[in-house]
Design a protein around this nucleic acid. Sequence first.
DNA 1: AAACGGATGGGCT
DNA 2: GCCCATCCGTTTG
Length: 210
Amino acid sequence: MKPQPLPRDFFLAPTERVARALLGTYLVHDTPEGKTVGRIVETEAYLRNDPACHAFRGPTPRNAAMFGPPGHAYVYFIYGMYHCFNVVTQPNGTGEAVLIRALEPVLGWELMENRRLKHRPSRAIAPARLCDGPGKLVIAMAIGRALNHHDLRKSPLTILPADAFQHPGVSAKQIARGPRIGIRQAADLELRFWIDGHPCVSGPRRQATQ
DNA sequence: AAACGGATGGGCT
DNA sequence: GCCCATCCGTTTG
């Protein structure tokens, strides 16, 4: 039987719990160019009463998706040239989400590499560096503003459970946590989660690779 | 190995 | 006008 996308109820759990539960699941994007799949290895939670959260000061045109239905995408533009991809959590109107920060490439490696090289044609990219950051994975998976508000139970962009590719999943003991990256407000909150020691995690805390 | 600055443009005070 | 949920190449120790 074909694996079914994560159901709506998955995203109704407390956001911190959803951020942990997403580790080991698979982000799948079907495009005319081909299919790409990445295993989620790093996430961050953004909460309603959290000054670092885009929804903190209430709804605006930009953050509207965060106040929309759970299990939909929130895609936003940042630093004049990048996008970030989030999954909305909690009931409609709450304003919480999980940022997807890093993927382990699973399928469509060559397509992901070509997309990355188009943005940065100067050098080769090590496999573990292909999707080790929120801006990078969005380029590799070709996730753009058009997918803002997209229902992640439907084609072309879905999230499949950890067992979809015969993987046992991620146990609580394998999950590390720490402060979120790149924010000034609420910088002390430990709302970043990753698979401990995984080579595809972003930042200095990942395991040393070559 | 870590620190730093430039690119680049939308969103909000 | 200032602030970014970033990335990359260069410099520094």
